[in-house]
Each structure stands twice: as C-alpha cells, then as structure tokens.
Amino acid sequence: MAEPRNRYSTVSLVLHWGIAALVLAQVCLITLHEGAPDGAPDPYIGWHKSVGLSILVLTLVRVGWRLMNPALPAPPGTPTWEKVAARTVHVLFYVLLIAMPMTGWLASSAGGREIEWFGLFPWPLLPVEGGREAARSLMGLHGLVMKGLYVLIALHVLAALKHQFLDRDNVLHRMIPIIPRRP
C-alpha cells in the first residue's frame, strides 16, 4: 500500500506561491499607480492589468489542477467546523481570484480602454456596453472584491500560523516543504 502524501505536488506549490506573488505585485503596482503625479506617464496600470489577467489564467489552471488533484485531507482530529471553514475559504479564494481580474477586464472593456498584455499583444476586450458609467460601477465592484480578498488572505495566514504554532500538525510543511516536518 502506498504511503499517503504529506505535501502538495510541485505544480500545486508553484501555482499557489506564483499566484500569491502576483497578488502581492498587484498591491505594489496599484499603490505606485495611485501615488503617481497627475498627468505624469503611468506605466503601472498597464502592468497591473497584465498581471491581473495572468492571475486569471493561472487561477483557472489551478482550479483545473485542483479538480484533478484533490486537496490533502485535514490532519486527524481536525474539528468539522475547521474543515468546513478551510474548504469555504479555499472556494472563496478561487471565486475572488477569478472575479477580481474579471471585473477589471469588464471595466476596461466597458470603458473602451485597450489592454496590452505586457506590451506583447493586445488582449481582447469583452463585448460590454455602458461606457464610462458601467466602467465606474464595475471598478466599484473590483474594489469590493479586493477588500474581500484581503480578508481571506488574513484568515488564510492566521490559520496557517495557528496550525504551525498551536496545533503543531505539519499543515504548513505541506505548502512550504523547507519547513521541517514534525515527528
């Protein structure tokens, strides 16, 4: 009988940490964009859109990978409410990591603002009507999704720290293999 897996696959790790790094890059890019002087050239929003669309594609790949490679089971003795909470947070992560770039893409499309993916090729706009008013509403939704994503990130990090330092159950080792496995 095969020994049960005690960590996620390399593909899962690369997708998880790659998307996490891109989300952090988004925070930096939008902060730089918001701090740019009015009227000055602003390369940050173009990069922000490209990174956002990359997050969309990678999240769709991650969802597909996850469907083919289910999550590891919770450690023995994990209360049912924690299992339900973990599953809920993960599903909401996927929903928001798709909704976030989609609302940005829809807003750019509604406003007729072209998107160049890292300056390499034009990203197609979606067939959305409504002009600036629709774009403004969609950007409001984009901001709301961002706040939800921040809440999920905080919950996720706090849960990981709880598992590492209170439960001491090797859950963090599954996603950060350089952390030594506890006996």
Results as ranks from 00 to 15, higher is better:
His90Val: 10
Pro127Leu: 11
Thr10Cys: 04
Pro101Met: 05
Leu92His: 05
Ala21Met: 07
Thr80Ile: 15
Pro101Asp: 05
Leu72Pro: 07
Leu56Trp: 01
Phe93Arg: 04
Arg62Phe: 15
Pro79Ala: 03
Thr103Trp: 09
Arg87Gly: 04
Val51Phe: 15
Tyr44Thr: 00
Ala36Lys: 14
Ala36Ser: 15
Gln26Ser: 12
Arg7Trp: 07
Ala135Ile: 01
Glu116Tyr: 13
Glu82Gln: 14
Tyr94Val: 04
Arg66Glu: 03
Ser9Cys: 01
Ser54Ala: 03
Ala36Cys: 13
Gly131Ile: 03
Arg132Phe: 11
Ala134Tyr: 08
Ala99Leu: 00
Lys83Cys: 13
Leu24Gln: 11
His90Thr: 08
Tyr44Ser: 02
Met68Tyr: 11
Arg113Glu: 02
Lys49Asp: 07
Trp117Tyr: 02
Val14Glu: 03
Ala135Leu: 00
Ala110Thr: 02
Asn69Cys: 03
Leu96Lys: 08
Glu129Gly: 08
Leu106Pro: 02
Val57Thr: 13
Pro79Val: 03
Pro37Met: 02
Gly64Lys: 10
Pro79Thr: 01
Glu114His: 14
Ala135Ser: 08
His33Thr: 07
Trp47His: 13
Pro73Leu: 10
Arg62Cys: 12
Arg62Lys: 14
Phe118Cys: 06
Thr59Pro: 04
Glu133Arg: 15
Trp117Ile: 01
Gly18Thr: 10
Tyr94Ile: 05
Tyr94Ser: 09
Leu92Arg: 04
Ala71Asn: 06
Thr31Arg: 08
Gly46Lys: 12
Gly46Met: 13
Thr31Ile: 10
Pro4His: 05
Val14Asp: 04
Pro122Glu: 04
Leu58Arg: 13
Arg132Trp: 11
Val23Ile: 15
Thr78Lys: 05
Ala107Glu: 06
Leu126Glu: 03
Phe93Glu: 08
Pro41Asp: 14
His90Ser: 09
Ala40Trp: 07
Ala25Glu: 11
Trp65Arg: 10
Ala85Ser: 01
Ile55Cys: 10
Val89Phe: 10
Leu15Cys: 06
Glu129Ile: 06
Asn69Ala: 03
Pro70Thr: 00
Gly104Cys: 09
Trp17Cys: 12
Ala21Lys: 04
Cys28Glu: 11
Leu56Met: 01
Val89Gln: 04
Ser109Val: 07
Pro127Gln: 06
Gly131Pro: 02
Val57Ala: 15
Asp42Val: 12
Met68Val: 11
Leu60Gln: 11
Leu53Phe: 12
Gly112Leu: 03
Pro127Ser: 10
Arg7His: 12
Pro122Phe: 05
Trp123Gly: 06
Ser50Trp: 12
Thr59Trp: 05
Asn6Tyr: 01
Trp105Asn: 01
Ala74Gly: 06
Pro127Asn: 09
Gly39Pro: 13
Pro43Tyr: 06
Ser9Gly: 01
Met100Arg: 07
Pro124Thr: 03
Leu32Trp: 12
Gly46Ile: 12
Phe118Gln: 05
Arg62Pro: 11
Lys83Tyr: 09
Pro4Ala: 10
Val63Asp: 03
Glu129Leu: 08
Thr103Ala: 08
Leu58Ser: 14
Ala36His: 11
Ile55Leu: 03
Trp47Ser: 14
Gln26Pro: 13
Pro37Phe: 00
Pro43Cys: 04
Val95Cys: 04
Pro75Lys: 08
